Simulated assay, not measured.
Amino acid sequence: MEALLDVIDILPLGELVGLKPMSYATRLGLATLAFGAAMNADKVIARVIGFVWLLLAGAGLFLIGITKGTAVDLVLGVAVLGAAGYSWWYTRS
């Protein structure tokens, strides 16, 4: 238990994130909806809007992570950009 307290003292958890927690919940909820729209091979406009939103959200989170040095934002940015890449690959094949 003491080792866990030492880790918490060394690495403040507040420095891992750059945004407010509700902002993450909102962005991840919208990213889930955008991913569903981007995976829809039948509706071109929904697919394009979802894909563009994923690209912008992923790039935004990634840039926040780089500028503020926050690990959570970097990981989420890469994940959302990966979701955009996967949806593009899935609908092209």
Rank of each mutant, 00 (worst) to 15 (best):
L13W: 11
V17R: 10
N40G: 09
E2K: 06
G60M: 10
G77E: 11
T67Q: 03
F35N: 03
A83E: 02
W89F: 13
L76A: 06
L81P: 00
A46E: 10
A41C: 10
A79N: 07
A71Q: 11
L74K: 00
L19R: 11
T70Q: 03
T67N: 04
D9M: 05
M22W: 13
G65F: 10
K43C: 02
S23Q: 15
G69F: 11
G65R: 01
V52F: 14
R92M: 06
S23T: 14
V80P: 08
W53T: 12
A38K: 07
E15A: 05
V78S: 00
R92A: 13
R47A: 07
K43V: 15
T32E: 02
R47D: 01
G36M: 15
A83F: 08
I49P: 04
D42W: 11
A37I: 07
V44C: 02
R92S: 14
P12F: 09
L55K: 02
L76P: 01
G58N: 07
V52G: 07
R27W: 07
W88E: 02
T70N: 04
A41D: 04
L81C: 07
L13F: 12
T32I: 13
L5W: 04
T26W: 06
M1P: 06
A57D: 07
G58A: 09
E15H: 12
A37G: 05
I64P: 03
D73R: 01
S93H: 12
